[in-house]
Simulated assay, not measured.
Amino acid sequence: MKPLVILRPEPGAGRTAARAEALGLSPLRVPLFEAEPLPWQAPPAGQFDALLVTSAQTARLANLRAYRALPAYAVGEATADALRQAGFPRVTAGDGDGSAIAARIVGDGHDRVLHLAGESVAPIEGRPLRIMRIPVYRMRPTGAAALEESLPDVAVLLVHSPRAGARLATLVPEAARMGKHIVAISPAALAACGGGWASAVSAERPADDRMLALAARLCEGLSPYGGHATDAR
């Protein structure tokens, strides 16, 4: 059984590890980033029709109390749960990316949207919405020493973002990639990892359960799509 290496930041890494253990896997948490809050000035809630949140880190690190009366839209169920825990009574969760949830906001008849997000965020196709984006946290690189010390020669690596993929590609030289399998949350995250890995695959939709289903097969020495694992280099 190959070990599973989780590279996402906390607290998400802990949630993924718990799901992996429930599947009988042996997860190792090596976060490549740590979230930290940024100073920001909260605009009046009355300027907006809706709140858009694309990461659970926003609900964890920023004071959102002033916006609880707004309908809230979240990318992913984990982000939606974080908003509910922060006291938001009306939360709509999307299972796609930011552009998909933006289309849902348009369909619900909203116009002026406050997007509270990280310092770096994937582009969102939001027309005809008027979106004000304010960064409320940033991801600080970490984990380089831990990765160098603890990364097994043979392992399955979970990559939850293009940012993590790019950092992984920087930290792991091509000569050290041959025994390592990549499971990425999206094609963009997969592309950011570069080449030379034992195998590389992205989930058919950006969800933890889909990533873990693929990873479980690879940990058992099987192809994620049936049969034996193949070299994807």
Rank of each mutant, 00 (worst) to 15 (best):
R29C: 12
A18H: 06
T170F: 05
L28I: 14
R29P: 00
D111E: 13
D49K: 01
L51F: 03
P162R: 10
G94H: 03
V183M: 12
I124M: 15
F33C: 00
S150T: 14
L190K: 07
V172Y: 00
P27D: 14
D111W: 09
H115E: 00
A17R: 00
H160I: 09
L116A: 01
P11Q: 07
A215E: 01
E125L: 11
A145H: 13
P43Y: 03
A69G: 10
A200S: 15
G76W: 04
A20C: 12
R167N: 05
A69Y: 04
G87N: 06
L64A: 04
A100L: 07
G165R: 03
M178T: 14
G14C: 06
E220K: 09
E21Y: 07
L4E: 08
T16Y: 08
C219I: 10
A117N: 01
L147Y: 11
A164T: 15
L23K: 02
E10D: 11
A146H: 12
E119R: 11
P89R: 04
P3N: 09
P123S: 10
L218F: 09
V159S: 02
A72D: 05
P71Y: 03
V91H: 08
P224N: 00
L218M: 15
P37T: 02
I185D: 01
R90G: 07
I182V: 14
P3V: 06
Q47A: 14
T54D: 05
G12W: 05
P43C: 07
L222E: 15
R60K: 05
D231C: 13
A86G: 04
P9A: 13
R127W: 12
A42H: 04
D95Y: 12
A207K: 08
G195E: 14
G12A: 13
R217T: 02
L168D: 00
P37L: 04
G107F: 07
A192H: 03
V201K: 00
G96W: 05
D95I: 13
N63V: 10
A50L: 11
R217W: 01
P39N: 02
